[in-house]
Design a protein around this nucleic acid. Structure first.
Lengths: 246, 246
DNA sequence: ATTGATAATTGGTCGGACCACTCGACCAAT
DNA sequence: ATTGGTCGAGTGGTCCGACCAATTATCAAT
């Protein structure tokens, strides 16, 4: 099965305006609409799509939040350069456009992750509160190795809160949303679950003793490990190591 | 009738559904709605707000993209934990909720920036194409020091493209959107404009010679400089150095 | 050529209607 | 008592037609 097979929502694909959103994102990203170009009037677009104008407008509101279009009252709807104004929500949509997570984009995501996460773990180890330490302990030393995905996401979220950096919490949400969809593959391997459990306990130690450098290294190591596993998965299933396309 | 109060102030008046968005964000972030809590029915909320249901729905669609609410067909609308599902678009809205950019959040943003941007500049210096080098040259050696804000944003965007990391482009968009709103303060000082011009030229040199370490240091230095200026601005205008609240 | 009023175009909001889905109450079969 | 199915109330999703509000194009008056 493909990576995306799991991601498909449980038979709930009914919302019409979301289909419009996906379709328009696809067209704009594919270059069928150029930046600065003015779209047809809402009434006309709605007629072309055979949907009601209210439905189209709901789709347009979502596209507006994603930074893909600019809507000017009394004027019209203009396509924005998504490379300059698109946000992570759009990025996520682009990732999901294709059936398979694009290897290049996956590699990009892991690269950013390796830069940011260890550094924030370091700061978190320094500024964590005693309550956060107890939280981490409860997760790290819980019985069994089930729900390891959810447990891992909680650890990362705890690190984010302990770091005290509000922005990092929101950036982490982006990573976690991706891994909530694709991470089950990684955690289906008992060996990987064990690796994460060890990671949680080691991180707890670093947090307890307030050792930033140690926390950074622990986090960096586990990210390198998971990255290797993910790349290996791609190699086995798609015959090539992730590389940039385009 | 409904809009009577608003019509008195047509200058400040924005789109109705956007006011609903801001209002609901404020309420949820302030804790008036708890995560998991179910909101009233659309028809009821619309009646309470004295707006049409279609208008409310447009607001809800935006809130949904921001990760603030979950809408379930046939069931209801549920408040999500924005600390777990909120995205950068929501973060930006929170920043803009207060009149003044919250100093703590500002410091958080600059901290992440200092971690990520120099590293990406390093990679960009390595993998830049000749065309991108020429682009940078054109910006760095342009005449005059006007539009330095726009010029600086373009440099950063160029670095992002040269880094080859698609995700970084979208993360940078977040930073740039903030600085497009607040950066004019920084660039109103001729000394700062000169500092940026020098930064552009130095970066060009590092790109030309493909010196990653040099590019990283140049970027790190200019970020430290700008951060100091921004903090100083806050100290002068609000009497205190940015510090975490909460 | 400039100005100012006017019309045309377009997005924003409105009110009401019906469709599609969810959930819980109820009932029948086991 | 449990299971499974039916059905109705409630809720979000979509549709329709209308009017309000902002922008732009047009053109007459100066």
């Amino acid at each position: 099965m493909t990576l995306a097979a799991k991601k498909l929502d449980p038979v709930t694909r009914s919302r019409l305006h979301e289909e419009i959103v996906s379709q328009m994102i696809g067209r704009i990203v594919a270059g069928r609409f150029r930046p600065g170009e003015r779209l047809s009037a809402e009434r006309e677009i709605a007629a072309n799509l055979h949907v009601n104008r209210a439905t189209l407008r709901e789709a347009l509101k979502k596209l507006e939040v994603m930074g893909l279009v600019e809507i000017r009252h009394g004027d019209g709807i203009y396509v924005k350069n998504y490379l300059e104004s698109g946000n992570l929500e759009l990025f996520k949509e682009i990732v999901y456009l294709d059936e398979v997570f694009d290897p290049g984009i996956l590699a990009d995501t892991l690269a950013i992750r390796k830069i940011l996460v260890p550094e924030m773990a370091s700061r978190a180890a320094e500024s964590r509160t005693d309550g956060q330490l107890e939280e981490l302990k409860a997760i790290a030393f819980a019985e069994g190795d089930d729900d390891m995905l959810e447990r891992d996401l909680r650890v990362h979220h705890l690190v984010a809160r302990a770091s005290g950096n509000m922005l990092y919490i929101f950036i982490l949400n982006f990573f976690n949303q991706l891994f909530r969809d694709y991470g089950y593959l990684y955690f289906s391997d008992a060996k990987n679950r064990g690796r994460s459990a060890r990671f949680h306990r080691e991180l707890y130690e670093a947090f307890r003793a307030k050792q930033p450098a140690k926390a950074r290294k622990i986090m960096a190591d586990v990210l390198v490990y998971t990255e290797g596993k993910i790349f290996a998965f791609y190699k086995n299933n798609y015959g090539a190591r992730p590389a940039k396309r385009r």
